[in-house]
Amino acid sequence: MSEPMLKVKGLEAWYGESHVLHGVDIEIAEGEVVTLLGRNGAGKTSTLRAIMGLIGRRTGSIRFEGTELIDLRPDLIARTGIGYCPEERGIFASLDVTENLMLPPTLRPGGLSIAEIHTLFPNLKERARSPGTKLSGGEQQMLAIGRILRTGAKLLLLDEPSEGLAPVIVQQIGRTIRELKTRGFTVLLVEQNFRFAQTVADRHYVMEHGRVMDMVPNAELGASLDRLNEYLSV
């Protein structure tokens, strides 16, 4: 494997006094879909937030396509070509659906067109003029993913896109992620639902106590179920 697209090494992070990441190591090659699995509080969301610079303090190294991100501001990190979809979805109530969709600035050429996003998520077209927070949970999730596809970001950080959604919507999100992979997007996905994770991902990192404990290729997931259950069961 040549130099990975994203290489996180020895990442430590703090929220105020509380030390939440204790040396996270992750590598993702271009075009891969990789998940972070783990229990609540294992540090999955904190890892994504730390990559985006949305955390109090962080040390270690985050290299994206050869650029070191550890000392950059969040807007400059995004400008290197990373799209972020937060766990709470972050749909803006004072903006309508179209304004929400158009909000993130274009970072690079090569993003999806509005027409392509509307093909992926037809609901967004029908609700174009609704205030963002009048959408259903599933539609909000589609909007939160859709708006970062426009920007030309090649690496997408998705924080629990399946959370709290009806099974049929989860399936649609899953199809979307597979579709994005065929289009050449690279995805780092935080998940608690590893049945969903195994339908979309190439590899899985397992986190516990702010560290990556294990890495399981998707093909070996069945054989590693006992090991995984030990990490994930409550």
């Binding site: 949305l54 972020y84 803006f92 903006l95 909000l103 600035p105």
Partner: peptide
């Protein structure tokens, strides 16, 4: 306007707007 939508969005959640690549400061 576009800049107005940045403003309204930042009023709600400035950190996320910045994480989209907008120079919020």
């Amino acid at each position: 306007t576009k800049i107005g939508s940045y403003l309204r969005a930042s009023t709600e959640n400035a950190a996320l707007v910045q994480a989209f690549g907008i120079n919020v400061p």
